[in-house]
């Protein structure tokens, strides 16, 4: 399948990419292409101009300093999964990145492209929400930062505006007593999440003092399981307390669960507690 015709512009620097974006209304930004190109081939997106930022050096790399991981938007899933810094400072992110698509997809797909695309079945939006990430964006008005809770606005809709470029993603490094994990039931061909759950807990003296549980694959944006989180805080994390918390996610999801030909909304909602339990158990086992 061929995309509609478009003009191709390649940016060498972030400043150049930003300038090209201001000059070309309706242009789309291309990074690894693993979200945008499939959309263009299906003609669900037909931009007249594509601005390739794939070679902009300042958008690459992972660094850990000042208690936070800073991840360049062009960092591939393979680079994330292979990073010792990510594995130590953001266990769930490392785990999820290693299960996006397949090895060839992970070699090309980028974290920035993934979250800017904001597919409801995508793994990383849920993980980054659970870990409390901050998204740094460059636009016509300069730089700004957006919290994960405000970043994902709707299905395939984020805080990244038409003239904006997502530059870096900042993830707080693991605190003392914190453990995080990502569990998913993946579609066997696409490997997108049918149900995906990111969990992050902080355990202090045997008691859970903070918990975040965020689901993907079920709703148009990452869904926070507030009742499940509240049920964990103040408890020792045992099989029983985790199972009880997992049982509450139905009330958090409400009636907005999406279904498709592969898995109905009812099925996804029924499976969700199982994956919440698995993710929280794994996170608890890693808390240190």
């Amino acid at each position: 399948m061929y995309a509609s015709n478009f003009n191709y512009l390649r940016a060498g620097t972030l400043a150049e990419a930003s300038a090209l974006l201001q000059k070309n209304p309706g242009a789309k930004v291309l990074a690894g292409g693993h979200s945008l190109i499939p959309l263009m081939k299906l003609r669900l997106a037909s931009p007249t101009v594509v601005i390739d930022i794939g070679r902009v050096p300042e958008l690459r790399g992972i660094s850990l300093s000042g208690g936070a991981l800073t991840i360049g938007a062009l960092t591939t899933h393979a680079e994330l999964a292979a990073s010792a810094a990510v594995q130590d400072a953001a266990q769930a992110l490392s785990e999820a990145a290693g299960h996006v698509g397949d090895p060839a997809v992970r070699n090309r797909g980028t974290i920035g492209g993934n979250v800017a695309h904001a597919d409801p079945a995508s793994d990383l939006p849920a993980v980054l929400t659970a870990l409390g990430a901050t998204f740094h964006i460059t636009g016509p008005g300069g730089r700004r930062s957006v919290q994960a809770s405000d970043f994902f606005k709707g299905m395939m809709n984020t805080a990244v505006g038409e003239h904006d470029i997502l530059t870096t993603i900042e993830v707080p490094a693991r605190a003392a007593g914190q453990g995080s994990a990502y569990a998913k039931f993946e579609h066997p061909a696409s490997r997108y999440a049918v149900v995906g759950v990111a969990a992050c807990v902080i355990v202090n003296g045997g008691t859970c003092v903070a918990a975040s549980i965020v689901l993907c694959g079920l709703t148009s944006t990452p869904a926070r399981a507030k009742s499940g989180e509240q049920a964990l805080v103040g408890q020792a994390l045992t099989r029983e307390t985790i199972a009880a918390a997992a049982g509450k996610v139905g009330t958090d999801l409400g009636s907005d669960v999406l279904g498709d030909i592969f898995a109905s909304a009812e099925y996804r909602a029924a499976v969700a507690p199982v994956y919440v339990r698995r993710a929280v158990e794994a996170a608890a086992s890693r808390a240190r």
Binding site: Y8, R10, L30, G33, H34, I37, P38, K41, D52, G54, G101, D102, P103, A104, V105, N107, R108, A189, S190
Partner: peptide, 25 residues
Amino acid sequence: TSQCGSCTVLLDGVAMKSCTCLAVQ
């Protein structure tokens, strides 16, 4: 649609799915 892997090639030594990459890239 970058699912089946039949189009896998090495690009600068690294495997990727050539149906999901523009030649210009």
